[in-house]
């Protein structure tokens, strides 16, 4: 049997990995969003602060989640490198461009700009990891009333900065477009295309690609605009 990695030079295998890592990242988005929603709780008696910091501690220390987080780092890196390699190869496949081209007649914009959208998301992920993940893991953190590292205050402070909120919202728009095409595309790549299921997958994908990024983007907006 040829191993999946040995075959990585094949176009289809590269795509299988894009799809599998993409689907994994999608499931991660759900978990991440549910955690973030804790930020929106009322914080009169520090409930939101304590809940969010507990959640952060759990996510960074619970062994099973630690393993999953390594799979996650790997997936993001792999998805980005593999994706950009595919983009470069695809550019090479058409050395002379059309003088006059109307791609909008036969395909949606997002499907033709996955590399660009992914790059915006990548820039966001790097900034995002720098301002939260890196700080949490490698710098001195403030402590909350329960003695946990106070991620809550760090996040809320960042969300009071206009540039950060703007970057966040633009990136979530990019994510929305990325998934508007990517969600159902990932199934097609794995060979799942059936008259019964594909229309459902597409609808779920469209809904997911709008609701999830919008919910992510709503959090910094709410925090920015609340006193």
């Amino acid at each position: 049997m040829a191993t999946p990695f040995a075959l990585l030079k094949t176009s289809l295998v590269k795509k299988y990995w894009m799809s599998l890592t993409g689907i994994f990242l999608i499931t991660f988005l759900i978990v991440h969003l549910l955690g973030n929603l804790a930020l929106l709780g009322s914080n009169d008696g520090n409930e939101a602060q304590i809940a969010f910091n507990e959640y952060t501690k759990f996510m960074t220390t619970f062994p099973l989640i630690k393993i999953v987080s390594y799979v996650l780092y790997f997936s993001i890196l792999f998805h980005a490198i593999d994706g950009l390699m595919l983009v470069a190869q695809n550019k090479k496949a058409r050395p002379v461009k059309y003088a006059h081209n109307k791609p909008e007649k036969n395909s949606i914009w997002a499907s033709r700009n996955m590399g660009l959208l992914g790059t915006v998301i990548l820039i966001f992920i790097v900034t995002h990891m720098g301002s939260f993940w890196f700080k949490y893991k490698f710098t001195e953190m403030p402590i909350d009333p329960m003695g946990n590292k106070d991620m809550y205050s760090i996040v809320v402070l960042s969300f009071k900065e206009l540039w950060y909120v703007l970057l966040y919202v633009v990136s979530m728009a990019a994510l929305a477009f990325h998934l508007y095409h990517g969600f159902s595309s990932a199934f097609q790549t794995l060979g799942v295309n059936h008259p019964k299921y594909t229309p459902v997958i597409k609808k779920v994908g469209y809904a997911f690609s709008i609701i999830v990024p919008a919910a992510f983007a709503a959090i910094p907006l709410v925090i920015y605009f609340s006193n």
Binding site: K15, L86, K92, P103, N106, S107, I108, R112, H181
Partner: peptide, 26 residues
């Protein structure tokens, strides 16, 4: 190049060959 599932081929194909074939090959 590598397929990005844009679906443009299916739209422009004079014989209406379906993307289901690409999924089958995948």
């Amino acid at each position: 190049g590598n397929c990005t599932n844009t679906g443009a081929c299916e739209v422009e194909c004079p014989k209406g060959i379906s993307l289901e074939n690409i999924a089958r090959m995948n």
